[in-house]
Amino acid sequence: MHPFEVMAEPIRRRIVEILAVGEHPSSIIVDVIRFEFSVTSAAVSHHLRVLRGKLPDGFTRATHRRRDALRDGA
């Protein structure tokens, strides 16, 4: 899946927006996404798995980010 296809999904974009402000435990991300999109925890977990497998190396895990990679445009 191409990175643009990954980011075309609104839930995945929102997860990245949440991570852009700092690291968060996956439980917080799940709670926010469940509330905002009215989806199940399993659906959020699916999107987190997709992001973990498809985001650039700047993301070590979908629930943690590296500031230098985002700043450098990775």
Rank of each mutant, 00 (worst) to 15 (best):
residue 39 V to H: 01
residue 48 L to F: 02
residue 54 K to R: 12
residue 63 T to S: 01
residue 51 L to A: 03
residue 54 K to Y: 07
residue 2 H to T: 15
residue 7 M to R: 01
residue 11 I to W: 07
residue 59 F to N: 02
residue 1 M to D: 09
residue 1 M to V: 15
residue 64 H to M: 02
residue 16 V to N: 04
residue 68 D to E: 14
residue 68 D to A: 08
residue 13 R to Y: 07
residue 48 L to M: 14
residue 62 A to H: 02
residue 31 D to S: 09
residue 2 H to C: 14
residue 43 A to C: 09
residue 12 R to Y: 09
residue 54 K to L: 14
residue 72 D to R: 10
residue 47 H to N: 11
residue 37 F to I: 00
residue 68 D to R: 09
residue 11 I to V: 15
residue 33 I to S: 04
residue 56 P to E: 00
residue 70 L to E: 00
residue 35 F to A: 11
residue 73 G to K: 12
residue 42 A to C: 11
residue 13 R to A: 07
residue 39 V to W: 03
residue 34 R to K: 13
residue 25 P to K: 04
residue 36 E to A: 03
residue 64 H to P: 02
residue 28 I to Q: 02
residue 29 I to K: 02
residue 8 A to Q: 15
residue 51 L to G: 05
residue 66 R to F: 13
residue 71 R to H: 07
residue 17 E to I: 08
residue 64 H to C: 09
residue 4 F to A: 14
residue 71 R to T: 03
residue 8 A to N: 13
residue 16 V to T: 10
residue 52 R to M: 06
residue 36 E to M: 07
residue 44 V to W: 01
residue 61 R to N: 09
residue 47 H to P: 00
residue 49 R to H: 12
residue 58 G to T: 05
residue 66 R to G: 05
residue 19 L to C: 02
residue 30 V to Q: 04
residue 52 R to Y: 06
residue 8 A to E: 14
residue 47 H to G: 02
residue 27 S to V: 12
residue 42 A to P: 05
residue 46 H to W: 04
residue 62 A to C: 12
residue 36 E to N: 11
residue 53 G to F: 01
residue 44 V to Y: 04
residue 31 D to C: 01
residue 17 E to F: 00
residue 28 I to N: 01
residue 46 H to M: 03
residue 32 V to H: 01
residue 9 E to A: 14
residue 29 I to C: 03
residue 44 V to C: 08
residue 19 L to Y: 00
residue 60 T to M: 07
residue 73 G to S: 13
residue 72 D to M: 09
